[in-house]
Amino acid sequence: MDIKHSTVSANGIRMHVAEAGEGPPVLLCHGFPESWYSWRHQLRSLAAAGYRAVAPDMRGYGGTERPAAPGQYTLLHLVGDMVGLLDALGEQQAVIVGHDWGAPVAWHAALLRPDRFRAVAGLSVPFRPRGSGRPTAGMPQTGDEWFYQLYFQQSGAAEAELQRDVRATIRGVLYGASGDSAETGDITMVPRRGGFLDRLPDPGHPPSWLTEADVDFYVAEFERTGFTGGLNWYRNIDRSWELLGAFAGAQVTVPALYIVGDRDLVYTFKGMERLLANLPAFVPGLRDTVVLPGCGHWTQQERPDEVSARLIGFLRDLDRI
């Protein structure tokens, strides 16, 4: 099944889109530091199952525009991009799927526009209801180390580190947060006298689920674009919280699916066990929570066949309603 590429205008920016198949549309939103390519397996599987699978490079990534102003990367911008993409595709509704940072985009698209997004699946990151204070205020830090999302708030420092050796960055991040990694320390905390990559193991080769050609693709993309676009998503965490104040307490009411690996760093975040236990209260349409044994953070790449099968089963159940 061939993957087609095009450029469309959506929400005021040019967006690169990869798609395959015909049928009911399914939007696939990637995370950091990735691209449409992280959905390469699902594009073909969903197309073969009778769906129009669409994976854009998200705002700031790949062949999609990278607005210069950091404030143009809030969740409202990102959800607006997905609504604009639907319009550009000539589709009234779609199922939206997101992984990593793409998951909050998918969850909030379903929250804010259930008329356009008839169902949602989140991979790795569950829906998190709006808290009472700015998110960065509750992130862990000590005199010696701080949470990686706080480190990413600094303009310039993170870029310089990640761009110093893009191949080592891609290999280290994709291996270090995967289920293949033997790392037992907390890789989410960054030493104040060091950098984000210091605690990420680099075996000198890709993990088992990634080829050298896959690494080459990611390296070429980020050597061309840099990392600022993706980092700007982190720099709007508090701004997005402020802008979404009117939706405090709102529920995701459309049918939903959540998939996570039991070796995913997100799965071990403080408070995650309680959040997942109460997820149906915030997502009353939740059909299932799937925990994949031995799977790390890169869910749809580490377990492509299983994730595709779960997504197709979810979609088929929707079609029977």
Rank of each mutant, 00 (worst) to 15 (best):
M1S: 15
D2P: 12
I3F: 15
S6Y: 06
T7P: 10
V8I: 04
A10D: 00
V17I: 03
A20C: 10
E22P: 12
G31K: 02
Y37M: 09
A47R: 12
G50C: 04
P67I: 10
Y73W: 04
L78H: 05
G80I: 06
G80K: 03
V83T: 13
L86H: 01
Q93H: 10
A103D: 04
D115S: 11
R118T: 08
G133L: 10
A137T: 13
M139Q: 12
T142W: 03
T142I: 03
D144Q: 14
F147E: 04
Q149L: 03
Q149E: 12
Y151K: 08
Q153P: 00
Q154K: 06
Q154H: 05
G156N: 11
A158V: 05
A160K: 02
E161C: 11
D165R: 15
V166S: 15
G172R: 13
S178A: 13
A182H: 15
I187H: 04
M189G: 00
P191A: 09
R192T: 09
L197N: 14
L200H: 04
H205A: 10
T211E: 07
D214A: 07
Y218P: 10
E221L: 10
E223C: 01
W233D: 00
I237W: 14
A246E: 04
F247S: 06
Q251Y: 07
P255Q: 12
I259G: 07
D264I: 03
D264N: 11
Y267Q: 05
M272D: 03
N278P: 11
P284V: 08
V290Q: 14
V291R: 15
D305Y: 01
V307A: 06
S308K: 09
S308P: 08
I321G: 06
